[in-house]
């Protein structure tokens, strides 16, 4: 360990002094971390066992909140919507970013290729609320850019965000638009790490570019793919801003998601205890995804 002074049993006054100075350096962020990152986790767990509306003190009700989770139709619907949303966004953004990254790395290692990479990254820097606002206008049934294009093609305009069947996929499309450039950058860095002699040997052996993709590039990118899929699932599972701004959960409850109902239960219904129970369940799901991913990685190391 490259620490300045190693820890030993018999501490010299100098070591003790250094330890104190170190503690002073750590202290400011420690206090903030404790207040805003650590304490809230335990408080959240505590609230989840209580009935709490912030006007009176929390009342302990044991597992009641959790018992009421399973027969809550709003919650089961939002869970199935969230899973559907993950199933739409994660595969599309992963495959899209992979194909683009590999293609640019293999065939467009020039200034034009790097220019396109910069352009494809731009949606990543647009805030979710600005993205939602722009796409809301593009989705307008009367004269929105997409419907004008459909009219131009002779098709009937579609009320993308106003129909139960199309609202969730339309929100997901914005997420894919925003995320693909991000994952493309990560994949691109991964492809650039593929040893060039591996690639050249394959070319000499007469492997076609499709064969090289399946048998060399894809296996090498496997750890990155695990990571990108995990990040994608976790990110999509927490979708809030887009839903809040684009549909407000509607039409009906067709775009209610887990993160949105936590917000609604807590800050619209003032049912903080119940919302905390949902939040704790979300935490358990996210931790399980992390655990599954780390198991995959262990398997690879062995």
């Amino acid at each position: 360990m490259p620490t300045a002074v190693s820890l030993k049993k018999g501490k010299s006054p100098r070591t003790r002094r250094q330890a104190l100075i170190g503690a002073a350096y750590i202290a400011p962020s420690f206090i903030l971390m404790m207040i805003f990152n650590v304490t809230p986790i335990f408080l959240s767990a505590f609230y989840s066992f209580t009935k709490y509306n912030m006007t009176a003190a929390p009342v302990w009700i044991g597992l009641d909140n959790y018992a009421r989770l399973f027969n809550n139709k709003v919650l089961t619907e939002s869970l199935s919507n969230t899973v559907r949303y993950v199933l739409i966004t994660v595969p599309s953004q992963t495959v899209l970013s992979l194909l683009i990254a590999v293609f640019i790395a293999e065939h467009m290692k020039n200034r034009y290729g790097s220019f396109l990479r910069s352009v494809i990254f731009i949606p990543v820097i647009v805030s979710l609320i600005a993205s939602a606002t722009v796409w809301n206008i593009m989705y307008q049934p009367k004269g929105g850019l997409i419907n004008q294009f459909l009219e131009f093609l002779g098709a009937k305009p579609v009320n993308f965000l106003g129909k139960k069947s199309s609202a969730l996929p339309s929100v997901a499309a914005v997420a894919i638009w925003k995320a693909s450039g991000y994952y493309m950058v990560i994949y691109y860095a991964g492809v650039m790490n593929v040893p060039s002699d591996v690639r050249e040997a394959a070319i000499v052996d007469g492997a076609s570019s499709v064969q090289r993709f399946w048998h060399i590039t894809l296996p090498i990118l496997k750890p990155i793919t695990y990571m990108i899929v995990t990040l994608g699932i976790i990110g999509s599972f927490q979708v809030f801003d887009l839903v809040y701004k684009m549909t407000g959960g509607g039409p009906g409850r067709s775009t209610y998601t887990v993160a949105y109902v936590i917000y609604a239960f807590a800050f619209q219904d003032k049912n903080y205890g119940y919302a905390s129970a949902v939040a704790i369940c979300l935490l358990i799901v996210i931790l399980m995804i992390h655990l599954i991913q780390s198991l995959f990685f262990k398997e690879k190391d062995a």
């Binding site: 650590v38 304490t39 809230p40 986790i41 599972f237 927490q238 979300l282 996210i286």
Partner: peptide, 24 residues
């Protein structure tokens, strides 16, 4: 040990700490 604890907090979704932070 403290540093490992810090790293663990990065896995916590924002919605989980939102309500207690709001209360505090």
């Amino acid at each position: 040990a403290l540093f490992q604890g810090y790293l663990a907090t990065m896995m916590i979704p924002g919605q989980v700490i939102l309500i207690p932070m709001f209360v505090m």
